[in-house]
Every structure is written in structure tokens, then in C-alpha cells.
Design a protein around this nucleic acid. Structure first.
Lengths: 158, 158
DNA sequence: GAAAATTAGTTAGTGCACTAATCAACAGGG
DNA sequence: CCCTGTTGATTAGTGCACTAACTAATTTTC
């Protein structure tokens, strides 16, 4: 067995592990978020709005690293749920101002217990969660940089 | 600001970071896998088959932790690409035997360079990739266990 | 001030991933 | 046997996530 054969197996474990971990953790959130009538991506949008509202659609998609085309129907579903309102900004008619409805703002109270519940379900303390987060952020950084610079020799003149 | 308010932010970083990292890394694979005409999930299926073929659909879905309902159309697309053949097993007419076509087997040669390319693109050496993999496996374990035991006191008699 | 370029969002189309419902094939127990 | 229950795969339906193409509004440039 050559080095590359080993690589194939190691790599499988890497990207495979990351994908499965993401799916598994999101799945573990599901029953908890069901009590708020939210999916996991919708929960992330609400977190962004609880930190700051009203907020421009463009701003939210930047904060969550989501394409505008992905966010657009997501916001419509949140509006249909009654958690969010969508209006064109007066200052710039292109911009979509997204705001919390009273129900959306009130939902934050119920969401306060979610993080603690999930940490205990996943058997993580704050330190390991924080370390994990650090690793993820570094990965995101490396992956998006790799994405921006497809040519193999790009780092030579970066 | 209360402890729970801080939790909301920490948690956001955790599950959020994991999801974004997964998406970002998969996106970084995309241009590399495009040369094999494969998507990332399709690549994972091929890896499973390169390790062992023929293989039962049920077996593949277990190895990749994918629902059979997700795998089914995926296999059809791989068949349409000419990399895979699908036949009912003679021994058990319910079972679907998935095998590599010559083209699918030959594709492995081109795939050998993928892991090395990706590791360098992500700026990871084998040790950190291995450590990362370990962390992911532990997370998967915790998350699936949490999933199997929704009642809060389940670990008391585990 | 009009033409050109840019920006913000939406729509269309593809592919994943899940749940629930369905179907055919198998395995046992009476 | 045959009836019941289980198993392996598929189908239908929902929701994410992406790219490409498009619309409309704003900004830049001449």
C-alpha cells in the first residue's frame, strides 16, 4: 500500500468526519429547537437578530456566511411563522430591513435555555466548546482562503 | 448581562462554527472534485466503494451515516455518471448490490491526489488533521447518543 | 444629466438530507 | 402452508445551500 493509498483513508476521515459531525450536532438540536418551532438555520438567523435588530438582509447573510439566495426564502419562512417582519428600507429601496416581531423578540426568553441544554447533551464544558470553536474558526479561515485562491501557486505572491 | 445571555453567544459560536466549517470545507473540495465530475457526497460514496466493492446499499448508508432515502437518489446519479452499477442481489431480492464499473474503478487513480491537495489547501499537516478527526468522532458519538436518548435523565441508567 | 457599472434581492434549477408512507421480499410461528 | 412481522429500498414532501440569471435601485463616470 502506497502513501497515497493511506492518504485516501486519512482524508476520508477528515472531511467525512466534519460533515457527519455537523449533521449529527444539527440533528441533536432538532428536538430542542422544535419547541420553538425553529429549524437550525432559522435559529441561527434569530440569534443574529436577537443580537441586533432591525438588520439588513445583506448584513445577516454576511454574519452567517450564507448566500443571499439561501437567506431569502429562509426569511420568508420566518415571516410566515410570525417571528420576523420584512420591509424595504426607506433610505435605500434596494435594501431589505428585517426586524423582530413582538413574538420573535419574546421567543428569546425560551431560547435562553437552549445553549445550556445542548452543551450538556453533547457532554461539553465551556472550555472544550471554546477550544472546538477556535479550531472551527481556523478551519473556516483556511477553507475560505483556499477557495478565494484556486491557483496552486497563489501563496507564492500573496 | 446574565450568564444565559453569554451562553447564547457562546453557543452560537459552537454550532454555528461547526456548520460553517463543514460548508466551507466542502466548498473548498468542490473545484478539486469537479475534475472527477463528483460532488462531495458522491465522492464519499466512491471512497466507500473503493475500499470494498460490491457492497450492499444498506451497508454503504451505515458506513456514511446516511439515511437510505438520501443514498438512493445519490446512487442513481452515480449510475447515470457511469461510475456505479445497481443490481438486485440474487441471494436476497430486497437488497441492492452496488458495484464499481470499470470507469468507476479507474477513477480511483485520479482521486489519489485529492487528499494531499486538500490538506495543503487547508494548511493542515497529518497530525493536526488526525487530531481534528478525533475531535469530530467524539462529537459524533456524543451527538448521536444525545439523539438516541431524548429524556433528560437518560444517562442515569445508561 | 445620461450612460455605464455596481449593488441588493429574488427566482429558477440542481443536489443533499431528513421524515413519513409505501412496497416487495424475506423469516417465523401457528 | 399462511399469516404476521420485519427488513431493504424507494417515493413524496419539506427545507437548506449553492450557482446562474434576472430585476430594480443606486452610484460612478463622463
Amino acid at each position: 500500500m502506497t502513501v497515497q493509498d493511506n492518504d485516501l483513508r486519512l482524508d476520508r476521515q477528515l472531511c467525512f468526519g466534519l460533515s457527519v459531525a455537523s449533521r449529527s450536532v444539527v440533528a441533536a438540536y432538532k428536538p430542542v429547537l422544535a419547541e420553538l418551532s425553529l429549524t437550525h438555520p432559522q435559529y441561527l438567523v434569530m440569534l443574529a437578530l436577537w443580537e441586533q435588530a432591525p438588520r439588513q438582509a445583506k448584513d445577516i447573510s454576511g454574519a452567517l456566511l450564507l448566500e443571499p439566495a439561501t437567506l431569502s426564502p429562509l426569511l420568508k419562512r420566518l415571516e410566515a411563522l410570525g417571528y420576523v417582519s420584512r420591509h424595504r428600507s426607506a433610505a435605500d429601496q434596494r435594501a431589505l430591513a428585517v426586524d423582530l416581531t413582538p413574538a420573535g423578540a419574546a421567543l428569546r426568553e425560551k431560547a435562553l435555555s437552549v445553549p445550556g441544554t445542548m452543551l450538556s447533551r453533547l457532554g461539553l464544558d465551556r472550555d472544550s466548546a471554546s477550544a472546538l470553536h477556535h479550531t472551527m474558526m481556523a478551519l473556516i479561515d483556511a477553507a475560505t482562503r483556499a477557495d478565494d485562491a484556486p491557483p496552486a501557486h497563489a501563496q507564492l505572491h500573496a
